[in-house]
Amino acid sequence: KKVTINGVEIKFNNPEEAVKFALELAKRLNLRIEFHGDQIKIE
């Protein structure tokens, strides 16, 4: 399963991993996060 985070394609074994990764990243950098299907936007 491929997920695009800020235009960067990252391959994950499952979608939950991708979501956890994105949330952790957003929390660490104190950023806002948006989900659009397989696209995750962090700003």
Results as ranks from 00 to 15, higher is better:
Glu24Lys: 08
Lys11Ser: 12
Ile5His: 04
Val19Met: 14
Asn30Ala: 06
Pro15Lys: 09
Leu23Phe: 09
Glu34Cys: 14
Ile10Arg: 03
Lys2Trp: 13
Glu43Asp: 09
Lys41Pro: 01
Asn6Gly: 10
Phe35Trp: 12
Phe12Arg: 01
Lys2Phe: 13
Val8Thr: 06
Lys1Gln: 10
Lys1Trp: 15
Asp38Trp: 12
Thr4Glu: 04
Ala26Glu: 01
Leu31Ala: 12
Ile42Gln: 00
Glu43Gln: 11
Ile10Pro: 00
Lys11Cys: 15
Thr4Val: 14
Asn6Phe: 15
Leu29Met: 08
Asn6Leu: 13
Val19Lys: 07
Gln39Met: 13
Asn30Ile: 07
Asn14Gly: 06
Asn6Gln: 05
Lys27Ile: 08
Asn13Glu: 11
Ile5Gly: 03
Ile40Pro: 00
Asn13Pro: 10
Gly7Ser: 03
Val19Asn: 03
Ile33Phe: 04
Asn30Val: 07
Lys41Leu: 13
Ile42Ser: 01
Val19Leu: 14
Ile40Asp: 01
Lys2Ala: 09
Val8Cys: 15
Leu29Gly: 04
Ile42Ala: 00
Glu9Tyr: 11
Glu43Trp: 15
Ile42Phe: 06
His36Glu: 11
Asn14Tyr: 08
Ile40Arg: 00
Leu31Asn: 00
Asn6Tyr: 12
Val8Gln: 06
Phe21Lys: 02
Asn13Val: 09
Phe21Ala: 03
Ile33Lys: 00
Phe35Asn: 01
Arg32Gln: 05
Glu16Lys: 09
Arg32Lys: 10
Glu34Gly: 04
Ile5Phe: 13
Phe21Arg: 03
Ile33Trp: 05
Glu9Leu: 12
Gly37Glu: 10
Asn6Ser: 05
Pro15Met: 14
Ala22Glu: 00
Lys1Cys: 15
Arg28Lys: 07
Arg28Cys: 15
Glu43His: 13
Ala18His: 03
Glu34Tyr: 12
Gly7Cys: 14
Arg32Thr: 07
Ile33Asn: 00
Asp38Thr: 07
Asn30His: 09
Glu24Tyr: 12
Glu17Phe: 07
Ala18Leu: 11
Ala18Tyr: 07
Arg32Asn: 05
Thr4Ser: 08
Leu23Asp: 01
Lys41Phe: 14
Glu9Cys: 15
Glu43Met: 14
Leu25Tyr: 12
Val8Met: 10
Ile33Asp: 00
Ile10Val: 06
Phe21Cys: 15
Pro15Thr: 12
Lys1Arg: 13
Lys1Pro: 12
Phe21Thr: 02
Ile33Gln: 00
Thr4Ile: 14
Lys27Leu: 11
His36Arg: 10
His36Asn: 11
Arg28His: 06
Ala22Ile: 14
Asn13Thr: 11
Asn30Glu: 03
Leu31Cys: 13
Ile5Met: 05
Glu16Gln: 11
Glu24Gly: 07
Phe21Leu: 04
Gln39Ala: 11
Ile10Glu: 01
Thr4Leu: 14
Phe21Pro: 00
Glu9Arg: 07
Lys41Cys: 14
Asp38Pro: 05
Leu25Gly: 00
Phe21Glu: 01
Glu17Trp: 13
Pro15His: 13
Glu24Gln: 10
